[in-house]
């Protein structure tokens, strides 16, 4: 018999796998609301993925196995990431000290394969996107790690489950300024890693200006479906890091916890939609500045925590 906690953990995991694409629907709806449009249906991402899964593929003759492996490894990485990140208060299925480093490394593995797959096509556009992607992520990685350092220091915990298990109202009262700064840093990393405005415009159709979307120009059919679903899961994971800090809930009871958490995720998506509606894309030259700023915010949070 499966113990109750495992059942609940599986339930939360299922929620992640099912609900992740919904975030994109909420973002698009928010944007549409701002622009006074009706917008695509909330479930558009599901329709897209389902349709792609039913299609054949068109592949460049330049490509090799690296190209075909790219989307597959990418999706496996973020799916494994879902096993590492705790949702709604319960410990994650795989939890050990230092698991957040593995999470960061899984994102790096995903990037390694996505970028290699992009270069495999020999297209200059995809090379351009790949080159930008590695630059931005190289700066986002220290920001993420220093943010984890702040959380670890404050909670005296070395695994994500323990960390988020201890973020409580009391912690918020003790070190609110630090937490706000870390949240800001994480939000910047969230936007950068998920290729959202102000870092990247997922809706543009000009190859020269894109970062993430341009890397997957040559993928089609199920491959593109994997990529879309992978990016949804990635957004869910990184979003969960933020929501877990903002809503310090544990074990009020199971269903309200899950409900609150999902509401939090949807609100985060609304926030992304608002940012995208009121901001323009940054000039590419200024993107590193914002990311260096994120590292700065995280370091500042740590300094305040040590000082206080």
């Amino acid at each position: 018999m499966i113990p109750v906690t495992t059942q609940m953990a599986l339930l939360r995991l299922a929620a992640a796998f099912v609900l992740a694409p919904l975030l994109f629907g909420v973002i698009n709806r928010t944007q549409a609301l701002f622009a006074g449009r009706k917008g695509p249906p909330l479930l558009q991402m599901y329709f897209d993925i389902a349709k792609l899964m039913r299609k054949g593929t068109v592949i460049s003759r330049t490509t090799t196995w690296v190209f075909r492996l790219g989307p597959i490894v990418g999706l496996s990485c973020v799916a494994t990431g879902c096993l590492l990140v705790p949702f709604a208060g319960l410990p994650a299925p795989i939890s050990f000290p230092g698991d957040f480093v593995v999470l960061v490394a899984l994102l790096a593995l995903m990037r390694f394969f996505t970028v290699s797959a992009a270069l495999d096509t020999g297209s200059s556009f995809e090379g351009m996107g790949a080159s930008r992607e590695v630059q931005f992520s190289a700066l986002a990685e220290p920001a993420l790690l220093v943010s984890f350092a702040v959380l670890a220091r404050q909670t005296s915990a070395l695994s994500l489950s323990e960390m988020f298990g201890q973020v409580s109202v009391i912690f918020w009262q003790q070190a609110a300024p630090s937490f706000i700064l870390v949240l800001a840093a994480l939000f910047i990393v969230f936007l950068a890693e998920n290729a959202r405005i102000p870092f990247d415009d997922p809706n543009t159709h000009l190859e020269l200006t894109m970062v993430h979307e341009v890397m997957v120009l040559d993928h089609g059919g199920p491959d593109l479906g994997f990529i879309l679903y992978g990016s949804a899961l990635k957004m869910w994971i990184l979003g969960a890091l933020i929501v877990n800090i903002v809503i310090p809930i544990h074990e009020i009871s199971v269903w309200p916890d899950i409900f609150l958490f999902i509401v939090g995720m949807l609100l985060l998506a609304v926030a992304v939609g608002v940012v995208e509606s009121v901001m323009a894309r940054l000039r590419l030259l200024h993107v590193p500045q914002l990311l260096v700023g994120a590292v700065g915010l995280a370091i500042l949070a740590l300094m305040l925590m040590l000082g206080a």
């Binding site: 490394a105 290699s116 590695v134 190289a138 993420l144 220093v146 590292v295």
Partner: peptide, 20 residues
Amino acid sequence: VAALGLIGGLAVACFTKVFG
């Protein structure tokens, strides 16, 4: 930790470049 993170990110950039 921050240095190691930066090194890791840049190493990914460097070796996707070489292999790619």
